[in-house]
Write a protein that binds this DNA or RNA. Structure first.
Length: 803
DNA sequence: AGCACGCCGACT
DNA sequence: GTCGGCGTGCTC
């Protein structure tokens, strides 16, 4: 086995295959599949993943592997196979899939440098550029105005050569420790020799006489109230010594979590967990859908199932939507399983993510709680996979590889022969339909563990409100309820369902709306720096004082942002204390937790925010939940908009009265008759499911069909339509006519982005085994145009957003 | 993708 | 001749 098959780090279709390399003698015994290597590729050096070992190659002139980067493989056999499957399934390149499975820092960066090979004089400008150095970065050359041909000539004459470097991003964290450098009695003796006025040194040595063990420098400084310079002096005198030790960054301090113990399960919980435990016991794969209302104790089921798995010496993966939003969730897992838990989410720094990943790789932990990508945790003996809030759209990755964590979970569950548990109060129609068909095993929890009823929901028709002369964004009922709640000393959560709205800028005189010059979308106003920004291409311009069209000075920002709600709230009820939570106030790291803590400490009466406050918050003192505009996302061009509205309303309702106090929910809407609003107010998931399924069937949408979305983008409007048309035409010919529909060309909801026109072709199909192959064919067909005229074709199998 | 190489037209 | 621009083909 002296030849390695390598997937190299080049994102190009023609490179999407293995390349064979000779394994140098020194690596033969070390190298295994799943390790990263540095290999020569043309003139440069790049990294790659070893996916296979063999004795022979069809290629006769093999190059040698330059370096092996890992001691332990970063991808297990299972993950190598899984990555291949993900890539094939989502029509992405293997290298893209593999990189998505690993923490960012394992992805190499490439650099070029110029090397001076001769003592002889170089041409004047090059000599000047090198300025006596032997190496300079390639960028330095590029920034100079020296023509490339001059460098080329020098390279040909071998006076200069190019070095291709592979740089690792990995930074391990080190902490300095200090300890005595001599026996304690010698230290005690040396105390005598110190000058009378060396009080700080005495203090330090005195500390070590009492505690002769190594101590972190930072702690030592605090404890002894000394400075680094004193330690330095003692090190120079040979009395102390210091050393650096690698440590894991610790985003969560284990000690901060109070230990919790298994609760007694209710009868319903018991019934739900039993079949899961049975599968764990028998080591069989199955998918469970736990449909449980908010407060029905789903998490306790997860915890006890995991307990079972850990006792069997196996591992568990738990996916949660966006964990930074639910510190309470982390608390529950860390509280139960302590330092057996690794946490993986987007708010961690790259270094922290890497450290958590290494804890998993080294099996120092056996539970990982994390966002989407945690599904690729390098465990090798998985006993259960849990996806909480299964309906959340964040489980679908929106850039390549466009995988859905649920699909990957099931794939891994099959491999490990372990159960996969999907939990939600409002399952996706896809999952619930599968449960109905018996593909998944359904467990229903319709009772809350505290036996409390779900809070009463009242719907307020904002049209009537308007008719009766109330033009504010607070209905009379909501206003009164807020006042009463505050009077009782209880708290309120106000949700501004803002998606679809944003703070766009419009001229009140001529109606002119400021749009991005590169995209077909209104610019968004940012109060912080008084700038207008495009959310698609990051274009920015200052907020104009007068309308660029009619020069009127009545140009204003519109839309119900949280800021405006806050302002009008303080006008209406000046005494009320409000905490506002939105992208602006939570941008800083830890700001999120801080705001929630303040609210929990009752430093405010109202928590006002967007979607992010709807999820997983649990405050005992909140008894009123208000939804300001329930229907604002109901009319988006998205076949899931009803489902999403139902989910959001149900979820936010669950925030009221979770503990002793009874809760109340007020939903303001302009379409009170809409079934997703009506049924969510009655907590009737089943009826919603039936009604929505009816509509999905009528209009042929999932789960009745599968979707595939091909988006074509081109700088030229007509060409974009032309290519889409051709794709539609080609596909229509090759698919099964009776059950498959090929739609298009349809302009994408945002037709122009970054000066490119976007059109799409949607495929609705039931059974189309060759679809991926056919789409691949199309892409290959247009390869030339993609290179020559900047045509771009992206494919999303099972799209979530039809953008 | 990203690099080398080769051809071509424009420029001093 | 020198420079930059662009098209082509290759990477084990």
């Amino acid at each position: 086995m002296n030849i390695a098959s390598v997937i190299v780090d080049v994102q190009a279709k023609s490179i999407n295959q293995t390349f064979d390399y000779l394994i140098p003698e020194r690596y033969v015994d070390i190298l295994t599949t799943g390790m990263r290597v540095i290999v020569p590729f043309g003139p440069r050096k790049i990294t790659g993943f070893v996916v296979g070992l063999k004795d022979n190659s069809e290629f006769d002139k093999l190059k040698e592997i330059i370096e092996v980067l890992d001691i332990e493989p970063v991808l297990t056999e299972e993950l190598l196979e899984l990555g291949k499957w993900v890539a094939d399934d989502t029509l992405t390149m293997y290298i893209t899939a593999y990189q998505a499975m690993l923490p960012q820092v394992l992805k190499a960066q490439y650099k070029k440098e110029l090397v001076r090979n001769t003592d002889e004089r170089l041409p004047e400008d090059l000599e000047f550029l090198f300025a006596g150095r032997d190496y300079i970065s390639f960028e330095e050359f590029e920034q100079s105005s020296i023509p490339y041909s001059k460098l080329q000539k020098a390279i040909q004459e071998t006076a200069i050569s190019i070095n291709y470097l592979v740089k690792s991003k990995i930074t391990k964290k080190y902490v300095t420790f200090v300890e005595p450098n001599k026996e304690i009695y010698l230290i005690e003796e040396s105390l005598m020799d110190l000058p009378q006025n060396a009080t700080k040194q005495r203090e330090l040595l005195g500390y070590f006489i009492k505690h002769p063990n190594p101590i972190e420098q930072g702690k030592l400084l605090k404890l002894t109230n000394t400075t680094r310079s004193t330690i330095k002096t003692l090190i120079e005198k040979g009395l102390l010594r210091e050393y650096k030790q690698e440590v894991y960054r610790n985003p969560y301090d284990e000690n901060a979590f109070e230990r919790t113990y298994p609760l007694t399960l209710t009868e319903q919980q018991e019934r739900a967990i039993l079949p899961i435990k049975e599968k764990i016991e028998k080591q069989e794969h199955d998918v469970f859908l736990v449909h449980g209302v908010t407060g029905s104790g789903k998490t306790e089921i997860y915890l006890q199932a995991i307990q079972e798995v850990l006792e069997k010496g196996k591992e568990a993966i738990v996916l949660v939507p966006e964990i930074s939003l639910t510190p309470q969730m982390v608390k529950r897992f860390k509280g139960r399983f302590g330092d057996k838990v690794a946490v993986m989410h987007s708010a961690l720094s790259n270094g922290e993510k890497y450290d958590e990943w290494r804890k998993i790789q080294s099996k120092e932990v056996s539970v990982v709680v994390g966002a989407r990508s945690a599904i690729f945790a390098p465990f090798e003996n998985i006993g259960i996979i849990i996806i909480d809030e299964e309906h959340e759209t964040t489980y679908k990755q929106e850039d390549q590889p466009r995988y859905h964590a649920r699909d990957v979970a099931i794939k891994r569950g099959q491999y490990h022969q372990c159960p996969v548990v999907l939990g939600s109060a409002t399952p996706t129609l896809e999952s619930f339909a599968r449960a109905q068909k018996g593909v998944y095993t359904l467990a229903t929890l319709d009772k809350r563990t505290n036996e409390k009823e779900m809070p009463e929901v009242s719907i307020v028709d904002m049209r009537e409100e308007l008719h009766s002369g109330n033009r504010s964004m607070f209905s009379q009922v909501l206003k009164e309820s807020i006042e009463q709640t505050i009077a009782r000393g209880e708290q309120i959560v106000l949700l501004l369902n803002r998606r679809g709205y944003s703070t766009f800028v419009m001229c009140r005189d001529c109606g002119h709306v400021k749009e991005c010059p590169h995209c077909d979308i209104a610019l968004t106003y940012h109060k912080r720096n008084n700038q207008l920004k495009c959310h698609y291409c990051s274009y920015e311009e200052p907020m104009p004082n007068v309308c660029p069209e009619c020069s009127s000075d009545s140009i204003r920002y519109f839309g119900t942002g949280t800021q405006r709600v806050e302002e009008s709230l303080s006008q209406l009820m000046p005494h009320v204390r409000v905490i506002r939570m939105d992208v602006d106030t939570t941008r800083k790291k830890g700001a999120h937790e801080k705001l929630l803590k303040q609210f929990a400490n009752k430093e405010a009466d109202i928590l006002l925010g967007t979607q992010m406050i709807a999820k997983g918050l649990d405050f005992g003192n909140v008894t009123l939940v208000g939804v300001l505009t329930a229907d604002s996302m109901l009319h988006l061009p998205d076949f899931r908009s009803s489902e999403k509205t139902f989910q959001l309303l149900t979820q936010v309702s669950g925030r009221a009265g979770r503990h002793e106090l009874p809760g109340q929910v007020i939903i303001q809407t302009y379409t009170p008759e809409h079934y997703s609003i009506q049924l969510s107010s009655q907590y009737d998931y089943k009826q919603f499911f039936l009604q929505e399924m009816h509509i999905r069937r009528k209009f042929r949408y999932p789960p009745y069909v599968f979707l595939a979305l091909i988006t074509v983008s081109h700088p030229n409007h007509v060409r974009a339509i032309q290519f889409t048309q051709r794709i539609v035409h080609y596909l229509s010919k090759v698919v099964q006519e009776e059950t498959t529909t090929v739609l298009g060309p349809t302009p994408s909801p945002v037709t122009r982005v970054k000066d490119r026109y976007r059109y799409q072709c949607m495929i609705k199909y039931k059974n189309e085994p060759d679809l991926r192959r056919n789409i691949k064919k199309i892409i290959n067909l247009y390869e030339e145009e993609m290179r020559k005229e900047n045509l771009l074709i992206t494919v999303d199998m099972q799209p979530y957003h039809l953008m």
